[in-house]
Amino acid sequence: MSEVVLRPMTMADLPVVHRLERTLFPEDPWSEEMLRGELADQPRTRHYVVAEDSGGEIVGYAGLAAAGGQADVQTIAVRADRRGSGTGAALLTELLDEAVRRNSEAVFLEVRADNDPARRLYERFGFERVGIRRGYYQPSGTDAIVMCRKLRTRPPMGFNRESM
């Protein structure tokens, strides 16, 4: 596994991150304005990080939205030449840790139905398929698989006769 350092994403990172976004997701990249909007909500409801290699070059990034006990992975992206190096796992670990810090009960995400490596990563981390969004990714019309990982369950609430 190649070493990466994770740090909070800043507005200064947007040109590099957006260039990666366009390269990695050529059919449906987020605009720089969309990314800027996500960062504007950080840290209130968002948590975005970048992964840097030993030379300080950004090789991946990820973002989480979290509010009201639920978290959603907004994006995870790893430069093609760094896939399989553990960078995606490091980014996902950070997002899950942040969801726990924010007292989320579950984390949801959508993954392209044709992205088997990403789906396997999520399954390795305990995500389970809970639904499908037909034609979610545009303009290709590719389906999204909705996945969820429970982080904690609520304690029993209310009256319990057995405890009396």
Rank of each mutant, 00 (worst) to 15 (best):
M1P: 03
E3W: 10
E3K: 11
V4Y: 09
V5H: 07
R7L: 03
M11I: 14
V16F: 04
R19T: 15
R22K: 14
F25D: 00
P26V: 09
D28I: 06
P29K: 11
W30I: 02
S31F: 14
S31M: 09
E32P: 04
M34S: 15
L35W: 13
G37Y: 11
D41H: 15
D41M: 15
D41F: 15
Q42L: 07
T45D: 08
T45L: 14
Y48H: 06
Y48R: 04
Y48W: 09
V49L: 08
V49G: 03
V50Q: 01
E52L: 15
D53R: 12
G55P: 03
G56H: 04
G60L: 03
G60Q: 01
Y61F: 09
A62T: 02
L64I: 06
L64N: 01
A65S: 14
A67M: 11
A67G: 08
A67P: 01
G68H: 01
G68R: 03
D72Y: 09
D72W: 14
V73T: 02
Q74C: 11
T75A: 13
A80C: 10
A80M: 11
R82H: 08
R83M: 03
R83G: 00
G84T: 10
S85W: 04
T87K: 07
G88L: 08
A89Q: 03
A89P: 00
A90H: 02
L91S: 01
L91T: 01
L92M: 09
L92D: 00
E94M: 06
L96Q: 00
E98A: 09
R101E: 07
R101G: 04
R101V: 05
R102K: 11
N103F: 15
S104A: 15
A106F: 06
A106L: 04
V107I: 06
V107F: 03
L109Y: 10
V111G: 04
D114N: 15
N115D: 06
D116L: 14
D116V: 11
P117E: 07
P117I: 12
A118S: 06
R119L: 07
R119W: 05
R120E: 11
L121H: 06
Y122E: 01
E123T: 09
E123G: 04
G126R: 08
G126I: 07
G126Q: 05
F127W: 02
R129F: 09
V130A: 04
V130C: 05
G131P: 01
I132E: 12
I132V: 15
I132Q: 12
R134V: 12
Y136E: 02
Y137T: 01
P139V: 11
S140Y: 07
V146S: 01
M147C: 04
M147I: 08
L151K: 05
R154F: 11
P155G: 11
P156I: 15
M157G: 07
F159Q: 07
F159T: 07
R161H: 08
M164R: 10
